[in-house]
Structures are given as C-alpha cells and as structure tokens.
C-alpha cells in the first residue's frame, strides 16, 4: 500500500514557476458566490394538497391499482408508476410510525428549539407516512405506535402550507401495536380496492 503522504511519482516533480510569478504571494483559494433563482412548480397534485391546508383539510390521492392512499399526493403511485388523481380527504388523527429526537437546529426553522421530535405520521386511512412534528408531551414519552391528532394554527393563520399544522399531539388512545405501525402495516386491499388497514378494523 502506497504512502498517502507521498504524492504519486508523476505528481512529485518540482514545479518551476515563471520568473514573473516567483515573488508573488500565492493564491490559496478564491471565493465565487453563486446565486441562482428558481420558480418551482408544485404541480396539480401538490397544489390541491397545499390549498386544502388553508381550509383546514388534509387530502391525499387514492391509487387506481389497489386503493392505497398516498400523502402528500404526487400524482403517481410509485409502486407501479400509475397516475393517481382521485382526491381523498383524510382524518386528522393517526399514529407515529417512527420518530427522531433531534438535538440540532434546522436551517430556517428558528421556531424549533432543540431537542424536538420529528416523526412519520401515519394518518388513519393513509397507506404511507409523512413527516410531522410531535409535541404536547415529553419527548421521552413519544413512542412508535402512539396515537396522535393534528394541532392546527388558529383559523386566521391557516395558509396553503403543511405548516398550517403546528404539530401532532397524543390523543391518549391505546397505541397501535408495533407490528401494525408504519408503512409495513399495509396489506393489499380486497377486490374493492379499500385500504387493508381499514378492513382489519384497526387504526
């Protein structure tokens, strides 16, 4: 194994600077600030999803393949590459699929004082989880499977953003068992294409 501190022989030769550069202070680095502006498109699926927040509603998309509900909707069932278009209104309750107690600040979120809990929120009727903050209890009391409900901003402060939900707080209901918590709880629905979790009567 070659010595990392010895340059490869092809690169170890002395560099002879032209005379004009010999007594000039070498340039060790240059700073070249970059600024680019983008106007990002939400797309029809995300736009309806965001606008619903301003009306204190949470909407997802139902897959035409087996009825699985996706949130946030992206206009596609990523399993099969099939377009989704059917909007479904979702409950404001669900459970914690898993979570992280974060001890670091998030750039641009000075309102969040570490440590705080970010979690996969699995809404009742949704087949996948999405990201949210959990508060309203001690961080140590957050659990996988804990039932939660949305805590909304006051009506006058709602807007077309998922941040219209301040955070998710415990409902006090019994936990969802670990083996049924999160994405892995999904089982393909029946021929009527309904959410398998609803069929089993839990959550």
């Amino acid at each position: 194994m070659s010595d990392p501190d010895v340059p490869p022989s092809a690169l170890s030769g002395d560099v002879t600077l032209p005379a004009v550069l010999r007594d000039v202070e070498p340039v060790r680095s240059v700073r070249t600030p970059i600024r680019l502006e983008y106007s990002v498109t939400a797309g029809s699926a995300a736009e309806a999803y965001l606008r619903a927040y301003a009306e204190k509603r949470i909407v997802g998309h139902r897959s035409p393949v087996d009825g699985a509900v996706f949130i946030p909707p992206r206009g596609v069932d990523p399993r099969y590459g099939q377009e989704t278009a059917e909007e479904v209104e979702l409950a404001h309750t669900g459970h914690v699929g898993s979570f992280c107690v974060t001890h670091l600040p998030i750039p641009g979120r000075s309102d969040l004082v570490p440590p705080y809990v970010s979690a996969w929120i699995h809404l009742d009727g949704s087949a996948i989880g999405f990201l949210g903050l959990v508060a309203g209890c001690a961080n140590e009391d957050v659990r996988i499977g804990m039932r939660v409900r949305a805590v909304w901003k006051p009506d006058g402060e709602l807007g077309p953003t998922s941040e219209s939900i301040l955070h998710w707080e415990p409902t006090g209901e019994p936990d969802v068992p670990f083996e049924r918590a999160g994405n892995r709880a999904w089982r393909a629905g029946g021929p009527d294409g309904r959410d398998g979790r609803q069929e089993r009567g839990d959550a």
Partner: peptide, 14 residues
C-alpha cells in the same frame, strides 16, 4: 408551468 417532472414522465413511461 403546472406539471412536475414526475407528472411529466408518468404518461411517457407508460
């Protein structure tokens, strides 16, 4: 203007 890259590609791939 109203379509994401994902929404653009779904019909083409299908």
């Amino acid at each position: 203007t109203g379509t994401t890259e994902v929404q653009l590609m779904v019909p083409l791939l299908n």
